[in-house]
Amino acid sequence: MNYTLHQLNVFLTVAEFGSITKAAEALHLTQPAVSIQLKNLQDQFDIPLTEVVGRQLYITDFGQEIVEASQNIINEVQVINQKLITYKDQIAGKLKISVVSTGKYIMPYFLTDFLKANPGVELKMDVTNKASVVRTLENNEVDFSLVSIPPQRIALDRITLMQNKLYLVGNASSTLGTSKNHKPSKLEEIDLIFRESGSGTRQTIEKHFNAQNLIVKRKLELTSNEAVKQAVVAGLGYSVMPLIGIKNELELKDLKIIPVKGFPIQSQWQLVWLKDKKFSPAADAYLSYVNSHKDEIIKEKFGWFENQRQS
């Protein structure tokens, strides 16, 4: 046997995604490069590691055994590397974070300086929908998650990072005036574009509408804030959107805030983790970093956000 750590890592990634194409994207390699590494590994075994049924790639039963063994090998190598770095009095290891889609506008700012100061820490950050974020928490697949509405059914600890402010916005040619606050009932007269059911943004908005006894018209339902934003810019309707994700569009005057009494709707961005979670050295160090530096990060990077008022 003459397999390499690189071949094992490629095989593990293919097994994780069930796709050479997706594995190549995750590894930042070309598809041919992944295929070659997979073939070189397979050539060392008389029993197939994978099989293709239709156009779908599957890991064989023997392949699953090799997946488990490969993961053990990779884990042991990581332990060796971490011991070396720790011996040099540095922090090392993986830091795993899941982030709801809107959180991509703030989470990098709470990571950059920490990662620069700790080059031995390897970040794995998954930006996805709320349902997937909750699943990663439930399955203990991540150290931390960033959410605006923490799931109630999971016992969690948390740090509040900053406010999440939602405003009614329209495009540059909107006929709704911006000189004074509109009554909340104005929301019942316009076409509104929503995020998909289950998103944190959607839940916050619907809670507010229900409290105001508003019956609104849902013209469109889209699966990302970027899609909602582009639909509003194109003039398909209005939306209640997180301020954090529309800074550039406001500055370019592609969007404008429509003042409404009772707005902005507010929630809080929270970094959450499983109660009684056993942290790795990297995760423990990151938690200490956030506790110590969050205020200065907010002041330096999000002063514009904290000072925003309806106008």
Score class of each variant (00 low, 15 high):
V272E: 01
M241T: 14
D284S: 08
Y286P: 01
P281D: 13
G262I: 05
T4W: 04
R218T: 02
L27G: 11
Q90D: 08
P281K: 05
I36K: 10
K301E: 11
T13H: 13
V240I: 03
V142H: 11
P242N: 09
T160A: 13
T60C: 14
R195T: 10
G237M: 02
E206N: 14
G18H: 06
F110C: 08
T178W: 02
R195F: 06
L176K: 14
D61Q: 06
D254H: 11
Q212K: 06
K278H: 09
V216L: 00
L271P: 02
T21V: 02
V147D: 05
A231F: 01
S185I: 12
S148D: 13
A211M: 03
V99F: 11
L168V: 00
I193K: 03
R218D: 00
V52S: 05
R55H: 03
A15G: 14
I66R: 03
E306Q: 15
S132P: 10
Q82N: 02
S288H: 06
I85Y: 11
S101T: 08
Q230V: 04
G235L: 00
R309N: 12
E68K: 06
V79R: 03
N291M: 14
L41T: 11
I59K: 14
R309D: 10
T13I: 08
K207D: 07
G245F: 14
Q82P: 03
Q31N: 14
L95G: 06
R55V: 09
D191R: 04
D157G: 07
K219N: 12
T160W: 11
E141I: 07
L156K: 02
E138T: 14
Q308E: 12
K261H: 09
N140M: 09
K261W: 01
F302L: 06
M241V: 12
F209G: 00
S101R: 02
T128L: 14
N129I: 05
E16G: 10
Y105A: 15
S311N: 03
K247I: 05
Q44E: 07
T102F: 01
W304F: 08
T223E: 04
F302A: 11
A92D: 05
K104R: 01
Q266V: 03
Y105K: 06
K277N: 14
A234M: 05
S174I: 12
Y105S: 10
A211W: 05
Q44L: 10
R202L: 05
Q212P: 07
G63E: 04
S179I: 12
K294S: 07
F144A: 06
S145P: 05
E300F: 04
K22C: 15
V216M: 00
L57Q: 13
M162H: 01
N118Y: 09
F263Q: 12
N72Q: 14
V272K: 02
P264W: 07
H293V: 05
L222V: 04
E196D: 03
F114Y: 03
I85C: 07
M1H: 13
N81S: 13
E16I: 14
L255T: 03
G103D: 09
L243W: 09
L274T: 04
D295Y: 06
N75P: 07
N181V: 10
T178F: 08
